[in-house]
Design a protein around this nucleic acid. Sequence first.
RNA 1: GACCCCUUCGUCUAGUGGUUAGGACACCGGCCUUUCACGCCGGCGACACGGGUUCGAGUCCCGUAGGGGUCGCCA
Length: 452
Amino acid sequence: MSVRVRFAPSPTGHLHIGGARTALFNWLYARHTGGQFVLRIEDTDEERNTPEAINVILEGLRWLGLDWDEGPANNDPADGSKGDHGPYFQSQRGEIYARHVEVLKEKGLAYEHEGAVRFRMQREATTIPDLVCGDVVRELTDREQEQPDFVIVRSDGKPVFHLVNVIDDLEMGITHVIRGEDHLSNTSKHIALFRALGAEPPAFAHIPLILNSDGSKMSKRDDGASLDGWQQTHCVPEAVVNYLSLLGWSPKDDSQVMPVAELIERFDLPQINRANARFDVEKMQWMNYEHLRNLPMPRYRQLALKAGVEFGDAAEDYIEAALATCQNKVKQISDLPDYCRFYFTDIFEYDEAMAAKAFAPENKDGFAKLREIFANLESFGPEPMETALKALAEQLDVKIRALVMPARCACTGVKIGPSLYDLMAVLGRDRVLARLDRALARMDESNETGEA
RNA sequence: GACCCCUUCGUCUAGUGGUUAGGACACCGGCCUUUCACGCCGGCGACACGGGUUCGAGUCCCGUAGGGGUCGCCA
C-alpha cells in the first residue's frame, strides 16, 4: 500500500515555523517512500478565514519547495484542485460530514444532546500505537471519567475538529498521520472515531514540538517563529528546510549541511526524536550562510536583486564577476547592498576613520608609485597586481598594509570588502586608476591644508 | 485537579550495558591573511536528582524534581 500523508493547516494568517516543520516531515516522508503528499485546508473557522490567509500557507509551502500531489490549485475554494479525493477545503465538505454523522447516529454511536451531537466514547483507556513514542496507554482524565462523550457537531450545526479531521483522513485514504505532539492526547478520540466509522486508524507519528530559545511555547510573535519573517529577509529556502529537518530528526551521523535530495534520501520515521527542540536563530543563520555561499550564480544574483542591490547599467558579466567576489564573504543577503555598492557607483564617500589613516602623508609617495605601476601593468588580473604590489612594498621597505589600505579605501571607501586584488580586477583598470587619482588628489589637499 | 510526553555541553544532537561521552551552532585562543569572511588547529562546556538491577549504567527499572502538551459546542 502506497504511503499517503497530509498537511492540514488552518488559515490563521501566518505559517508557524512548527507548522512548516510538520509539513516538511510529511513531505519528506512522502518523497522518501514515493507516496503522496496531500494538502488540506481546515477552513471551518469562517471568521479569520480569508483568501489572503490561505495564500500565506500556499506561498509558504511553495517557497519552501514543498509541492503537494493533491490539494488546492490556488487560494479559491471554488476554483478546482488537483487530486481525486477532494474537495480539499473543509468548508466544501459539509455533506460528507453530515452523511457520516447520520451513520453514527443510526448505529447508536452518536446521539443528540441539547442541540449538539455527542459521540459515544469508550470508557476505558486507549492504547495509542505511535511510531515515535511507542505504545502510549492513554487513561481517562478526571473530567472524562465524569463525561467521556464529546461533542462532534455543535448546536449551530457545525462539525468540530476531531470529527472532520478523522473523516477527512479516512476519506482521503491517509495512511500515516504525522503531526505535532500536542495532538497525542487527542488521538484516543480519533482512534475511537475511526473505529466507529468502521475503519482501522492510520499509523500515527507524533513529532516533538518546537519551543523558543528559553523553552517556552513558541507563539507567532517570537523571534523566528513565523515563516514569513524568513521569507522577507530573503533567506535561502533550502536552508530553512535543512535547519528545520534537524529539529527533532537526526541523520544519526555528523551531517549538518545537506541538499534537499539528501534529506529525502535519508529521512525516515524511526530517527525522529521524542524530546521537544528549541529554535536557535543563530544556527538557522549559520545554516542560511552555508547554503547562500553555495548558491548557483543566477540564483544568487536574483536574491541580490530582491535584497535591493542596484546594478545600474552594469553589464551581465560585470555583475556576476562582482557578486562572485562577495558570495563567500557576506553572511546575510541583507548585508550585500552595502557590501557591494562600490562596484556599481563611482560616487561614494570615504569612511573618514579609515581615510585618515590610509591617506596619511607618509603613504603618499608609495601610493603614487603604485598608481603608475598599475597604469603600466601588462595584465590587470589579480595575480599580477598582487605580485606588483608586494614587490613595490619590498622595494620601498614598507608594510604591505601601507599600500593596500590606501588602495582599498580609494576603490571602495570602506574597510571591509572583497579581496582587494579580486575587486580591482573586476573594477577594471580605468575605474581603478580614476579612483586612485581621486584619492591622490585628496592626499594633496590634506598635505596643503594639514601639516603646513 | 486529572491524564500524556520528555530530560546528554548555553542550543541542536550522536550514543541502544564496558567510549578519554563524539559532532554542529555560539563563545574563547592560535595559524593563514590586505580587510572581513572561509579554512585549519586548539580550548571552554553535558549524562536533572535519588534509589535500585548488574562485575559494570548516559544506556534497564522505580521514585522525585523540572519542562512541554492535553482534558472546549477552538483548530
